[in-house]
Lab assay of single mutants.
Amino acid sequence: EALDLGTCKAKKKNGEPCTQTVNLRDCEYCQYHVQAQYKKLSAKR
């Protein structure tokens, strides 16, 4: 099993862990959760 392949560390809205696979060398979170957090933070400017 590849060491750099894993699952997203974020949690879904219902509290369950996200099940998307990610490349851990790039980021610990999937694209969906990265974009969601970016939108959330950019709205606070």
Rank of each mutant, 00 (worst) to 15 (best):
C27E: 13
D26Y: 05
C18V: 00
Q31T: 13
L24C: 07
Y38L: 13
K9Y: 01
P17H: 15
A2G: 09
E16A: 00
Y32F: 06
D26M: 07
G6C: 03
A43N: 00
D26P: 03
A10R: 04
G6M: 14
C30M: 00
K9T: 08
K40W: 01
K40R: 10
L5V: 09
K39N: 08
V34P: 10
C30Y: 00
T19W: 06
T7Y: 07
E28C: 10
D4C: 03
V22R: 12
A10L: 02
T7M: 13
K9M: 05
C30H: 03
Q31N: 08
K40T: 07
Q31A: 13
H33V: 01
A2Q: 01
K13N: 08
G6N: 05
Q37F: 03
E16R: 05
N23S: 10
C30P: 04
Q37V: 10
H33Q: 00
T19S: 12
L5T: 13
Y32V: 15
K9F: 01
Q37L: 07
T7W: 05
D26F: 04
V34N: 13
C27T: 15
R25F: 02
L41W: 09
A43E: 15
P17T: 11
A36L: 08
T19C: 10
C27G: 15
D26G: 11
T21I: 08
A43F: 02
K12P: 04
Y38F: 13
L41E: 15
K9D: 01
Y38N: 15
S42K: 02
G15T: 12
N23R: 12
G6F: 10
E16P: 01
K40M: 14
K9S: 11
T7E: 03
Q35S: 12
C27N: 06
E16G: 05
K13Y: 07
E28D: 09
K40N: 15
K12G: 05
R25S: 09
C30A: 02
D26K: 12
R25N: 09
P17E: 11
C8H: 00
L41P: 14
Y38E: 08
K9L: 05
Y29L: 13
A2R: 03
R25I: 04
Q20H: 14
K11L: 10
H33R: 01
E1C: 06
V22F: 01
C8N: 01
K13S: 08
Y29P: 02
Q35F: 04
A2M: 12
A2I: 09
K11N: 10
T19R: 13
V34G: 14
Y38R: 11
Y38C: 14
C8Y: 01
P17C: 03
Y32S: 15
V22N: 06
E28N: 15
E28Y: 02
E1R: 03
E1I: 00
A36P: 15
D4A: 00
C27I: 06
N23H: 05
